[in-house]
Amino acid sequence: MSAAIETHALPRIGAHLNPRWDAPLVRDRLAELRIPLDQRVGTLSGGQRAQVALALTLAKRPRVLLLDEPFAALDPLARRNFLATLTSAAAEAAGGLTVVLSSHLVADLERVCDHLILLAASRVQLCGDIDALLAEHKVLVGPRKDTAPIERMHHVVQTVATARQTTLLVRLGGPVIDPAYQAEDVTLEELVLAYMGAGEASACKQLTTVGEDS
């Protein structure tokens, strides 16, 4: 959006460019946000600009919405308002609305998303329904000992070992039988960190291999 465009021009441009266009939605949203129609877009705050962009996008009545880092420049209040608008639109959309968004803010993602696709080192590290992913993973805390029996049964994502204690983040391959380990629930943040760490480690390994070959 260029700074020369005034806000009142946007609904007109939108109507001209889109076969499906909900003009009242844009007008109502801008009124709700108390954004005057004669204000230049360039003079709006970051949060207001994001809300204007979202209102224009939603007026197309999309079935699928792709948002690349929509919260990046927003303060906590603007972020909350943006999320509220987005989730309300999803709740209202008659034909259903799928939102695909990228973000580093795990807490926000956990709040609004059904599915998670985790990218690290240009690869998909983890993908699935968030509730199912949380149920499938556990943190096992136990004494320092050979982890081979655990590794045969479960997929170990991350290992943290001290002189006395071993902490493993695993994707369960069955029940945890060894009573020496205490199985604890995992948070989404822990899960994301563990898989991102594992992704970086495997990417580094690949780089080393390439270096050794040449």
């Binding site: 309300s88 709740a91 209202e92």
Partner: peptide, 16 residues
């Protein structure tokens, strides 16, 4: 309503 909850606390409508 689901819509009211979602608008107030900004969570996934499916959660409600």
């Amino acid at each position: 309503t689901v819509r009211e909850v979602v608008a107030a606390v900004a969570i996934n409508p499916n959660t409600v």
